[in-house]
Structure formats: C-alpha cells, structure tokens
C-alpha cells in the first residue's frame, strides 16, 4: 500500500468498466420507449461490427442517443478533470471553470466566432471551438493576474469574487452580442445553461481529441499538483518548475473547458461537484484523485443528462439547470466547512 501512491492499473479497468456500464444504461433509456432486448441487440451488433437493420432503433440508438451519451461522458470527464486540476493548482477547493468565469469567457469566444461568421473551410466547428479555447485561456490568465495583483496569497474568496465578477461581465457581453445578432445565436439558454441535445459524432471526436491530448497532460501532472495543493512556495522548494507547470496546467485546463463549452455550452459546476465528492473517497492525492475524478465526471454527467432528458419526457430540461442545482448545494457546503473549520479546507 505504501509503495502504491499512484493509480494502479486495475483502477483504470474498474473506472472504464463503470463508465461503460453507465453508458449502457443511458443508451437504453430515454424519452422514447424502446424494448430493452431490441436495444441491446442493436448495440451488440454495432459493437460487433455487424450490419444493423435501418429503422427507428438504429436511428435513435446509434444516431441520437449514443453520440449524446458519449458527449456527456467526455464532457463530464473533461470538466471534472479541469476542475480537479485547477483546485489543486490554485489550492482552492472552489475553483472551477464556472466559478472562475472561464466557461463564460469561452462561451463568449464561441459566440463571437459564430456572429462574425469566422469559419475554417472543411473543418466544421473548428473556428468556434478554437475561439472558445482561446477565450477560455485569456479569461483564466486575466482572472489570475487580477487576483495576484490584489492578493498574492490567492485567497479562496478573492479569486472566487473576481471569477464571479468576470463571469458576469462575460455573460453581459454575451447577452449584448445575442441582442445585436438577432436570431443567429438564438438561445441564451444554450450558452448559459448548456445542452447536449443533438450532439453528433463530430462533437464526440472533438471532445475525444481534446481529452486525449489535454486530459493526458493534466493526469500526468498529479505529482506537481500535489505539491501545488500543499503550497506553491513549498512546491518551488522541492524542485517543481512552478511557472512551467502552472502554464501547462492552465493551458490544458482552459483549452479543454473551451472545447466543452463550444460543444455543449456552459454546463456549470461539474468541475466543482465531482472532484469534491471524489476527494472524500480517495483523499487529495492527485495521482489517484485525478483519474478517479475523470471517470466519476463521465458517470456523473451521463446520469445527469439522463435525468434532464427523461424526467419531464418528452420535454427536456437544460442540463445546466440540474448540475447547477446540485452545484449550488456543494458550493455552499464547501464554503461553509472551509469557513467553519478555519484551516480545514483552504
């Protein structure tokens, strides 16, 4: 046990198994009532590479539910991972794309790309995704520099306050953009609450690529994040190249958040709820915590999305409504305990 402070191979297997099981559950349920047997056979044939008979089942399962469930799993994994990483880096259990205003910044970038009609021929969504990534990173840099300038210790409340203010600014700019763009951007709900409705395999590929590249970067920085989570000065003293690690994590996290925002809008608080829950089980060691967070995030968002699309069937709830409700409770609980416990959480 002492030797194994990393994440063991069987952990990866177990995590993957949990994700796949949840995925199966989510693909089998939805507002359309499909027979379980038939559904399973379609899935089995699709996995086995056998031809699937055209029809309602194939359409609903393979064209609608599967890409949506995959998008939910990948977004959930990515958002949770980014939240966990930023909480470690900033030594702040309340840090998350939504609380820091990174998602709002990303949404603004994506919306701007759409309004200005920026596009890269042959690569659908590339321009808006790219802009979302760029704006997310810009927002994070801006928020952190401002926070540093005001309070070098990066106290929990300072940074959250700045994040909230920045978030409001970005959201109002977004509203302004929507007002001026007529119906082109349409729904503000999409950008502020998020939606995974109608996501297709292109979206899945974007998320998969993002998670493969930036997710790997984040998971590989577990040791460094442990040092940061204990204290940035201490990290420097034990030999962590703090500036380089910080930049690396910030780029990876904001790029990943930007990708998630461009695919599913700002789905709030996932990065706050999941790492918090996971930390209660695994402890704060990021080398265990980050991989578990990734799997738990995937499971969490798949189930949340399932709830959002079935509870009022055929009406869909915006997924952000569900995550934000849970998130608000968790936020208050962390804040309460960190205040009450004095030194305990931050």
């Amino acid at each position: 046990m002492k030797k194994q402070d990393g994440f063991p191979w069987y952990g990866w297997i177990a995590g993957l198994a949990a994700v796949l099981l949840t995925m199966l559950l989510c693909v089998c349920s939805g507002s359309a009532q499909l027979a379980a047997g038939e559904t399973l056979s379609v899935i089995a044939r699709a996995i086995g590479g056998l031809p699937v008979e055209d029809g309602l089942y194939k359409s609903i399962i393979l064209s609608i539910r599967l890409p949506r469930v995959l998008s939910a799993a990948l977004s959930g994994a990515a958002l949770a991972l980014c939240g966990g990483a930023m909480q470690g880096l900033l030594r702040n259990p309340l840090a998350d794309g939504s609380t820091l205003g990174v998602s709002s910044g990303g949404a603004l970038g994506a919306a701007l790309a759409i309004v200005l009609g920026i596009s890269i021929p042959g690569l659908p969504l590339a321009a808006s995704t790219g802009m979302a990534m760029l704006f997310s990173f810009g927002s994070l840099v801006m928020i952190l520099s401002l926070a540093y300038a005001m309070d070098r210790s990066l106290a929990t409340s300072t940074i959250i306050l700045i994040g909230v203010i920045f978030s409001m600014l970005a959201s109002s700019l977004l509203s302004l953009l929507i007002t001026f763009s007529g119906e082109k951007l349409r729904s503000i709900t999409f950008w502020t609450m998020g939606s995974l409705s109608g996501r297709n395999y292109t979206h899945v590929l974007i998320l998969l690529g993002g998670l493969a590249v930036f997710g790997t970067v984040l998971v590989s920085q577990g040791r460094e994040m442990n040092a940061f989570a204990v204290g940035e000065e201490n990290a420097r003293h034990v030999g962590v190249p703090v500036r380089r690690v910080k930049l690396r994590v910030m780029i990876a996290a904001s790029a990943l958040i930007g990708m998630c925002v461009s695919v599913g809008g700002s789905i709030g608080f996932v990065g706050l709820i999941v790492p918090h829950m996971v930390r209660l089980v695994t402890g704060p060691n990021h080398r265990r915590m980050l991989p578990v967070t990734m799997f738990a995030g995937a499971v969490f968002l798949m189930l949340t999305d399932l709830l959002a699309r079935t509870v009022l069937s055929p009406i869909e709830l915006p997924i952000g409504v569900v995550t934000s409700m849970i998130g608000a409770v968790v936020f208050v609980s962390i804040f309460y305990h960190s205040r009450k416990g004095g030194k305990s959480a931050c």
Binding site: K2, D5, V230, G231, N234, V240, G283, P284
Partner: peptide, 21 residues
C-alpha cells in the same frame, strides 16, 4: 519555511514524500 498551511487533507507521509520530487 516559517509558515506552513497545507490545503487539503494530505497525509503526513504524502507531504514528506514530496521532498523526493
């Protein structure tokens, strides 16, 4: 250092092991 304030509930051993970074 003079002041120590660890964030999060790391174990003593985990914090000490960071010295081997």
């Amino acid at each position: 250092e003079q002041n120590h304030a660890a964030g999060y509930a790391f174990t003593v051993e985990e914090v000490v092991a960071l010295g081997r970074y």
